[in-house]
Design a protein around this nucleic acid. Structure first.
Length: 274
DNA sequence: CAGGCCCTGCTT
DNA sequence: AAGCAGGGCCTG
């Protein structure tokens, strides 16, 4: 559920608090979350290393370390990354990994344990499948209407499945895809190559707008998302279609429809979106 | 391209 | 007790 705006919200908090602090000790309660190292290797590579910066590409978070190896994290559905300035004696439910820092601690929590952590080289490609093949971030200047038009032109897939594919645009997930398609007045089932120039520009603008709005409001909390300080986002109040099936379209009042597209729950207004 | 898998808490 | 939530990867 964390998509670009949620991951960016977490990143900003961590970037404000972590750089300059060192990881003293790592406690791993669920080793299988670490995908390319044993818990021993993982701890050995990161303990006593200083955190230099926290960066993001798509939905991936990078903790760049002062050392040859850094940390890559994907929160998937229910992953949470929080920083506590003062060590509390209480550990939040579903805490899976504790990063004890020189001041405070960072917790990786995950109810459904689908998240992933990797050790990666501090420079160059990550070697992590999916991460090295990301398309431009939806919020990046490299993501232009011209680029989008080029990608859509000869593609026969539905626009929803296209936008969920991170090699086309990085950072969109189920919520923001539905919201962007509503804002662009495109029905999720529309074939990419049946979207014209003018509509492509509208879609590009809509994608950028919903992502930036999501960041501005600190992410969308439907059930699980919390930011780096453990608080909920506020963007759920801005949603027009996601999770609103059966309720009136905010523009025309028609009932929002729920269908499955590309295996995902999909929400749209049958009146506004064509 | 569709469907299964992972995984657990919450809803029906 | 079954169904649902879905990101990313894998298989048929």
């Amino acid at each position: 559920m964390p998509e670009l705006p949620e991951v960016e919200t977490v990143r900003r908090y961590l970037q404000n608090h972590l750089p300059g602090k060192s990881i003293q000790k790592i406690e791993i309660f669920l080793p299988r979350l670490i995908k390319n190292a044993t818990p021993q290797q993982f701890a050995a590579a990161l303990e006593n290393k200083k955190i230099k910066s926290v960066e993001r590409r798509g939905k991936y978070l990078f903790l760049h370390m002062d050392g040859s190896q850094s940390l890559l994290i994907h929160l998937r559905m229910t992953g949470r990354l929080t920083y506590e300035e003062e060590n509390s004696s209480v550990l939040p439910r579903f805490s899976r990994i504790i990063f004890q820092l020189t001041q405070g601690r960072m917790l990786y929590g995950d109810v459904r344990t689908l998240g992933c952590l990797w050790l990666i080289p501090s420079v160059g490609l990550t070697g992590v499948k999916g991460c090295d093949t990301l398309g431009p971030d939806g919020t990046s200047p490299n993501f232009t209407a011209v680029y989008l038009r080029q990608k859509l032109k000869n593609n026969t897939r539905t626009i929803k499945s296209f936008l969920l594919d991170q090699t086309n645009v990085a950072g969109l997930g189920n919520i923001y895809v539905d919201e962007a398609l509503f804002a662009a007045q495109i029905i999720p089932l529309r074939r990419c190559n049946r979207i014209g120039n003018k509509t492509t520009v509208r879609l590009h603008d809509a994608i950028v707008r919903v992502l930036e709005e999501g960041i501005m409001y600190g992410g969308t909390t439907i059930r699980d998302f919390i930011n780096g300080s453990g608080k909920e986002g506020k963007n759920q109040h801005n949603l027009c279609v996601y999770g609103r099936e059966g309720r009136p379209c905010p523009v025309c009042g028609t009932e929002i429809v729920y269908i499955k597209v590309a295996g995902r729950g999909t929400h749209y207004c049958p009146q506004c979106q064509k």
